[in-house]
Design a protein around this nucleic acid. Structure first.
Lengths: 143, 143
DNA sequence: TCAAAAACAGATTAAATTGTCTGATTAAAA
DNA sequence: TTTTAATCAGACAATTTAATCTGTTTTTGA
């Protein structure tokens, strides 16, 4: 069994959506995020540290510290998180695992798949975090 | 970095496409498949044994033995191989990893993603192996 | 000033996936 | 009949991913 994104990426996406659903600028300790999303605290903490290095998230150390988005939610796209964690190879590499699959040496499903992949990319690249606020609250309940 | 299908599944798909590109009924030893596809022999052998158990592939033991498709290529779809190896969870589980993501408790990208997923499923379920013969030969060269 | 609570760094463990090896069995061909 | 080449079964090893642990630093608030 496989999945589109790694656990790291899934948790990163969830955490960022969570932060975007709160009032802007407010600080979320990793403990709170982990508890609300029911994911391991130390793991999500690591992931958010990575996203801090990538400039998507900011952090504040010490008591009453935590993580917050580094920019306005309207400036952050889901694809930015995917790019920072899993990378964008999935949107370029062959779905059947053939090496050097390209337009002039395409695998049997190259064109069909390419189209789907573009749509997937577009979906993740066109909408920004602010668009998901309501839906996130609806999904994970009170914040 | 992630990928849609596991290595097992990728290799299984490649191997089956390879067999379908040969004259029907002809026997392919795993050594030949591994060499042509540049993938590990023992691994592809294991995978084809699995597909034998699933009834997609047949095998012949002993000298000049090997693997062959169990049915006519026009009766085998790519999704059948995926189902036998990775399973179909990927077409049902939440892309963001939220537990219990469903139409009445959807994740933020539930609907958009669901549509893409259906298209992907359909692509893998609508075309049968015989349709890929030319394209496979074109991709992996002389068979 | 001091205790508490947080990020941060890095090591370690656990689990899953990927790949290899050994030997047994089978069947064709020499 | 014997050698050879294949599947097959099961254990094993290596790698990658996921998760945990330990300790340090930082900052706030009592």
């Amino acid at each position: 069994m496989t999945v589109i994104f790694s656990k790291k990426c899934e948790y990163g996406l969830q955490a960022v959506l969570y932060m975007a659903a709160k009032e802007s600028g407010c600080v979320c300790p990793s403990e709170e995020i982990a508890r609300k999303l029911k994911i391991p605290k130390e793991f999500v903490s690591k992931i958010l540290q990575n996203l801090t290095d990538s400039g998507i998230v900011d952090s504040k150390k010490g008591k009453s510290g935590g993580f917050m988005l580094a920019k306005d939610p309207s400036k952050i796209r889901l694809i930015d998180i995917v790019a920072a964690i899993d990378g964008l190879d999935i949107f370029n590499s062959c779905v059947l695992g053939f090496p050097s699959c390209s337009p002039d040496k395409p695998c049997p499903v190259h064109h069909n798949w390419g189209e789907l992949r573009s749509k997937a990319y577009e979906m993740l690249a066109s909408e920004t975090l602010d668009k998901f606020k309501e839906k996130t609250i609806n999904k994970i309940g009170k914040i």
